[in-house]
């Protein structure tokens, strides 16, 4: 089952009097439970594609359907709801709320979903356990190492058990040991919770963990390889 369907996607950004084309005629499908990566050098369009899948940006041409909803047709409220209910985000620089504790950071998506206090508490503790940070729940991000911050970000992305997690260069600020820890954690969550992970990366450490590698070059899909079957047993559709 495909949870993301991208057809002839083009994205242009205004630049001076003309426009810069970040994505050209991209067509891709992602199945449920995939552990896939958009790989390419800077400027290849991977973050742009991730942002459009995440309904943070809209296509210029073509269509992107996420969980049956057309991204281009969503208004701000509908897009926000799609993100809130179905997506988790992991960023290169963690993007944690600096004045909130680890617990409050992880709890945030559940507050948006208006879950009750008891349910929230249980889900946050579960998420912190997944990433091995139960002893840090009262710490604030400035008191944590980079690796710990990224684990908090993973917990925040996963706590609501979303259908998909979009991770933009999640290991870019981490050393090798921390990167492997993070990736193992995400791989485990992908396996156990059947969450779809889509990465945007050019880090070899991440690439080695991917089950599917989509190489982008100058805004086009250059190569799309599947290394292993997805956790659900589906095989990844190829371009």
């Amino acid at each position: 089952m495909h949870i993301i369907r991208i057809k002839n996607l083009t994205k242009r950004f205004p630049m001076g009097k003309g426009a810069f084309t970040a994505l050209r005629n991209v067509s891709l499908n992602f199945a449920e439970g995939e552990f896939a990566g958009l790989i390419g050098p800077s400027g290849s369009g991977k973050t742009t594609l991730l942002n459009i899948i995440g309904s943070l940006d809209a296509p210029s041409d073509g269509s992107v359907e996420v969980l049956g909803q057309s991204i281009g047709a969503l208004n701000a409220k509908e897009a926000a709801r799609l993100r809130k209910e179905n997506m988790g985000f992991i960023f290169q620089s963690y993007n944690l709320l600096q004045v909130h504790t680890v617990y409050e950071n992880v709890e945030f998506p559940l507050l948006l979903l208006k879950f009750g206090a008891d349910k929230r508490r249980k889900m946050v503790l579960d998420a912190l356990e997944w990433v091995g940070l139960t002893d840090k729940e009262k710490s604030k991000p400035p008191q944590l190492s980079g690796g710990e911050c990224q684990r908090v970000a993973i917990a925040r992305a996963m706590v609501k058990r979303p259908a998909m997690v979009l991770a933009d260069e999640p290991t870019a600020n981490l050393d090798a040991a921390n990167s492997h820890n993070i990736l193992k954690t995400m791989e485990k969550l992908n396996r156990e919770l059947k969450t779809t992970f889509v990465f945007a990366t050019h880090d070899d450490k991440v690439i080695n963990y991917l089950q599917r590698k989509i190489f982008l070059l100058d805004g086009r899909v250059d190569k799309d390889e599947t290394i292993r079957p997805t956790t659900t047993g589906d095989h990844v559709a190829r371009n």
């Binding site: 701000a76 409220k77 926000a80 993100r83 209910e85 620089s93 993007n95 944690l96 998506p109 925040r156």
Partner: peptide, 13 residues
């Protein structure tokens, strides 16, 4: 960044 994060996590602008 925080504003962007709120939006990514499901807030409207």
């Amino acid at each position: 960044k925080e504003i962007g994060t709120y939006i990514a996590l499901g807030y409207t602008r």
